[in-house]
Amino acid sequence: MNQITDEEILQLFQDKKTQSEAFSLLVKKYQERLYWQIRKIVLSHDDADDVLQNTFVKIWKGLLNFRYDAKLFTWMYRIATNESLTFLKDKQRRSIAFANKDVEEMLIANLEADEYFDGDQAQIELQKAILQLPEKQRLVFNMKYFDEMKYEDMSEILETSVGALKASYHHAVKKIESLLKLEC
């Protein structure tokens, strides 16, 4: 069976009677991709679950006004990315233990405490190295290295030019390689 297209979902969503069904189809189609995008930013599963739900609530609220200026998928990725970054900042602000520390330190602690992280030592070191990148480079690295996303799609999600994204990825790879060599 062919997967339902975004256009079909949006048409169903316009009708009150089929709105709920359309949204369930949308959630099922994109839940995993959005989850992994969020998870790579917030790292812990519980946080990713919270952010994913917030993301879909925002998508529900904005979907009636969505216009095809951007692809539906990149629009949803942008919401997921913004929600993740906002969540991390709020969490750090609320946390007594990490109030005066960097978000990255909080993320390393989250990662080490997460029962749903099953990486070997090399993967833990890689995640720690990724966390030492500036925020934008970290996003670009995760999207390119793990998801192999096209620069054009990334450009729409992060609202940054393709050239700047390529440069960001290049710098990120060099920095991570140098950090990992130091660690080895």
């Binding site: 992994w36 790292l43 099953d118």
Partner: peptide
């Protein structure tokens, strides 16, 4: 980095 395996260390 290309020498590293890209398996996701995260589970759900």
């Amino acid at each position: 980095l290309s020498d590293m395996k890209k398996d996701q260390p995260f589970k759900v």
